[in-house]
Write a protein that binds this DNA or RNA. Structure first.
Length: 519
RNA sequence: GCGGAAAUAGCUCAGUCGGUAGAGCAUUAGCUUCCCAAGCUAAGGGUCGCGAGUUCGAAUCUCGUUUUCCGCUCCA
């Protein structure tokens, strides 16, 4: 089976068993937006809990917050999001190259100047010493024509950029007969605005409401609260602030299932350090985060670091944690050394001091920041694709038999156990219900009495339930049951009284945390 | 965004030459009581992605459109 086929099967499986649905499917769906179903939400919540506890509980110097999605518009000026991503873009359909529409027009304007200079040069050669350049420029009809058209186009461009009139920009490109420098054709797409941030209005639209944005990253909610948390929590540097929340980016191309969505969830931690100590903390968090990933037990060889050569405007070091998806190694998490870029800019834009008084060094300074930023949805996809397993169970000479198993780590599995009466009579269902009641306060438990026991095991395999508790006739007599293990399909007999302890231990996140901290 | 492919029941798919929409699995109810799917009976479930056009008549032909997948492109 190719990786591509595997990925398609994973997407189909995710929908069929209630993990992930296309958004608004009855209306044909909405491109690159997905909903989590009854299984998906459990898996996702467990992954978030695994992250939150690993960051906030295991590290005494990290606390959490939950900032609003709406933020003051100035936030995005300070962060650099407003300025950097507002360009009108146009594609050439033949060369498939993308250009800034205003740059294309400006290049054309520059070319007109060159044309004029050429005419002047030609004339200068022709007339020799008697040549009056000024007079020539003013009187030559060919030059006059170029100058007039150039001026008209320039005026139109300025107006179009001011009014943000994208159709007019396209018309100017057509009227100037601008060709693609690579393909040499005039086969252009429409001009589009490439602003990554979603806009909305606050207050009455009629009374000149303010434009605000859906946050394109959660990090800024932490930076603007830096002083609040530091002061009220009596935090001493180095310390971190963690947050899980939604962010929104209007990607032009959003694809690969839930890998790149326009609405997505991030788990971010900003770690504030003394300037000059950022590189050792950068290394610390790279390693800590890698251990978090590897503790899930999917195989260390499927994870790697990718160090960035080209750095973003805010960073002085950056690395990705990549996982080997069916479609190749892809970024799941980023660890960035963000310097004092964000706090420094907020200080500049807000006029408030974003500084920390360090009692050890007796100095005030803007802290440096090391960020760990992981995509929740990408991690869900990572866990889904790592867990998806097809097994051939065909016995010698028997009929063909296969099963699909989601081999989730028990700690993140959506359903922890299913309680199954072997038959639907003789008091077995009643005893099974009693067992469900004894476990349901601590775990998500399913009860199923429909169809043969083998079929029920397969249904639980498909949603990755690690344990099936089977109630048989012996159970009624001696109050024991069998636990059937998902991966080995082997069974062991356990007293009903021991079930809460056995299941609780097996699905606990404790073992994962120990792997992270003991390394 | 460009190019290619696809879309029929929850899933996998069939549907001939344009002539009243089908199967298997799944689901629900009942029977069966069997520790690793596919035993029996019955039932429910379809705007054939959507919108136009051609036609006496369109799941089928044409155009447009939406969504998905693949390649390119993009991705602080």
């Amino acid at each position: 089976m190719t990786q591509e086929e595997l990925f398609k099967k994973l997407i189909a499986h995710s929908k069929e068993y209630g993990f992930i649905f296309p958004s608004s499917e009855i209306y044909d769906g909405l491109s690159a937006v997905y909903d989590y179903g009854q299984m998906g939400v459990e898996l996702k919540n467990n992954i978030k809990k695994y992250w939150w506890d690993a960051m906030v509980k295991l590290n005494a110097n990290i606390v959490g917050i939950d900032a609003a999605i709406f933020m003051h518009p100035k936030t995005w000026e300070a962060s650099g999001h407003v300025g950097a991503f507002n360009d009108p873009l146009i594609d050439n359909k033949d060369s498939k190259k993308r250009y800034r529409a205003d740059v294309l027009i400006e290049d054309w304007l520059a070319k007109q100047d060159e044309k004029i200079d050429k005419e002047v040069d030609k004339a200068a050669k022709r007339f020799g010493e008697s040549f009056d350049e000024e007079l020539f420029r003013q009187t030559n009809p060919r030059i006059a024509e170029i100058v007039e058209k150039r001026a008209a186009m320039h005026k139109r461009m300025v107006a179009a950029l001011t009014d943000n009139d994208l159709d007019e920009l396209k018309k100017i490109i057509e009227d100037c007969e601008i060709v693609c420098p690579i393909s040499g054709t005039r086969n252009w797409t429409e001009v589009r605005q490439f602003n990554l941030m979603f806009e909305t209005k606050v207050g009455s639209v009629a009374e000149g409401a303010n434009t605000i944005y859906l946050r394109p990253e959660t990090a800024q909610g932490i930076f603007v609260n830096f002083l609040n948390v530091q002061k009220t929590g009596r935090m001493k540097i180095p310390f971190g602030i963690a947050q899980i929340g939604k962010a929104f980016r209007n990607e032009i191309v959003a694809r690969q299932f839930i890998f790149r969505m326009r609405e997505f969830e991030q788990m971010e931690m900003q770690f504030f350090v003394r300037p000059g100590e950022e590189m050792e903390w950068y290394e610390f968090w790279k390693n800590f985060r890698m251990r978090w990933h590897r503790a899930l037990g999917f195989g260390d060889q499927h994870y790697r670091f990718h160090d960035h050569d080209k750095l973003a405007h805010y960073a002085n070091a950056a690395a990705d944690v990549e996982y080997e998806f069916p479609f190749g190694f892809k970024e799941v998490e980023g660890i960035h050394s963000r310097t004092d870029f964000d706090l420094g800019n907020h200080q500049k834009f807000s006029g408030r001091k974003m500084q920390y008084y360090d009692p050890e060094t007796n100095e005030s300074y803007v802290p440096y920041v090391v960020e760990t930023s992981i995509g929740v949805d990408r991690t869900v996809l990572q866990v889904l694709s790592a867990s998806y397993t097809e097994e051939d169970l065909t016995k010698e000479g028997g009929p063909k038999d296969e099963r699909v198993v989601m081999k989730f780590p028990p700690a993140v599995a959506p359903v922890k156990a299913a309680v199954l009466p072997l038959v639907k009579k003789d008091g077995l269902p009643e005893l099974a219900r009693e067992i469900v009641d004894s476990l349901k306060f601590d775990h998500v438990i399913q009860y199923d009495e429909k169809d043969s026991i083998g079929k029920r095991y397969r249904r639980q395999d498909a949603i990755g339930t690690p344990f099936c508790i089977t109630v048989d006739h012996q159970s009624v007599e001696d109050r024991t049951v069998t636990i059937r293990h998902r991966d080995s399909m082997e069974q062991e007999r356990v007293a009903i009284a021991e079930l809460p302890g056995v299941i609780g231990e097996a699905v606990s996140m404790r073992k994962l945390f120990e792997k992270i901290t003991n390394a």
